[in-house]
């Protein structure tokens, strides 16, 4: 049996002249936290809605737990899914608890579960207040709560941390890691790349309706061959020989400051550089290595033909 919870195969969807999804294929494995990254209009919301069966693709198949979202299977699959849409809207006249009761009824979940779910997202104190008076962050928590109803196997979270303060964001990812441990599969989108990169197992980078790359953050960086930033802080007396050694190894473009020597280093030059600097390592105050951020990776894949970075002075 396949371990893929979600399989998207050659899905196409266009709205008028706009090709929102152009031959998209990807798989999400059971129990992983999967990130979907892309600019506005990249097609991630369309892909999300297609996976949920809210949009019918023009071509291609989408399987959830090995089943297409057609016929009676649709209802069984839907009961096992939690969805938090972007910009969630509730019925202002209902209280938080009544809102959850309504969705619990639709999902076939006992109403008695609702208060506990509100407690999980830290909203139990406002359970009996009308949603009209909720802040943006509280609405987002309530949205997360309805997605958690019935302990779903798969969670679709579209920009889940919008409107949350830093404490709320930390709490949110705390819940995500607990759900992951319990075996749930989580697919989320975010525009804050720095926030998502530490918290997802794998990523799909989308632009112009295509999946440009899929993999772990590490793998995506490796494949793109983006250089890293290395900062060397030597004792002042060894500064001249260190600079000379670096120049001899092709690192003439160095930036010197109080912080030390900063250099942009291609991946394949990292080990040769440290090998050359080996005699001075004991005299170093500090060495810092900064990997390219997800933003850098993303921009690398967003341009049509990614070019591999090479040294400026070979």
């Amino acid at each position: 049996m396949t371990n893929n919870v979600i399989e998207v195969r050659h899905v196409k969807k266009s709205f008028g002249d706009i090709q929102a999804l152009n031959d998209v294929s990807l798989c999400v494995e059971r129990g992983e936290v999967f990130g979907l990254i892309g600019h506005n209009g990249a097609g991630k919301s369309t892909l999300f809605k297609s996976m949920l069966g809210l949009i019918q693709p023009d071509a291609g198949d989408i399987l959830i737990n090995g089943t297409p979202l057609h016929g009676e299977a649709f209802r069984q699959v839907r009961r096992r899914i939690g969805y938090l849409p972007e910009n969630i809207v509730f019925y202002d006249n209902l209280t938080g608890l009544e809102t959850l009761w309504f969705f619990a009824d639709l999902k076939g979940v006992p109403k008695s579960e609702c208060l506990a779910v509100l407690k999980t997202v830290g909203l139990d104190h406002a359970a009996r207040r009308r949603v009209r008076g909720y802040s943006k962050g509280m609405r987002q928590r309530l949205g997360f709560a309805q997605a958690l109803l019935g302990k779903p196997d798969i969670l679709f979270l579209d920009e889940p941390t919008t409107g949350l303060d830093p404490v709320g964001i930390r709490e949110f990812y705390g819940i995500i890691s607990i759900l992951k441990k319990q075996g749930a599969t989580i697919i989320l989108t975010s525009h804050i790349l720095a926030e998502i990169q530490e918290r997802v197992d794998r990523l799909a980078l989308m632009s112009t309706g295509r999946v440009q790359a899929v993999g772990t953050v590490h793998l995506l960086r490796e494949n793109l061959g983006l250089p890293m930033q290395i900062q060397i802080v030597p004792h002042p007396e060894i500064l001249p020989p260190v600079l000379a050694t670096m120049e001899a190894n092709g690192f003439s473009h160095t930036i010197q400051s109080d912080e030390g020597i900063t250099v942009i280093c291609p991946r394949d030059q990292k080990i040769p550089l440290f090998a050359a600097l080996a005699p001075y390592l004991s005299e170093m105050i500090d060495i810092r290595i900064t990997e390219p951020s997800l933003e850098d990776v993303f921009h690398g894949y967003s341009i049509p033909k990614p070019t591999t970075h090479t040294r400026e002075n070979p």
Binding site: L54, Q76, I81, P85, V89, Y91, L106, F156
Partner: peptide, 13 residues
């Protein structure tokens, strides 16, 4: 128009 339809239709309905 309010944006609540998508959530409703993501339910088993």
């Amino acid at each position: 128009e309010r944006g609540s339809l998508d959530l409703l239709l993501s339910m088993p309905i």
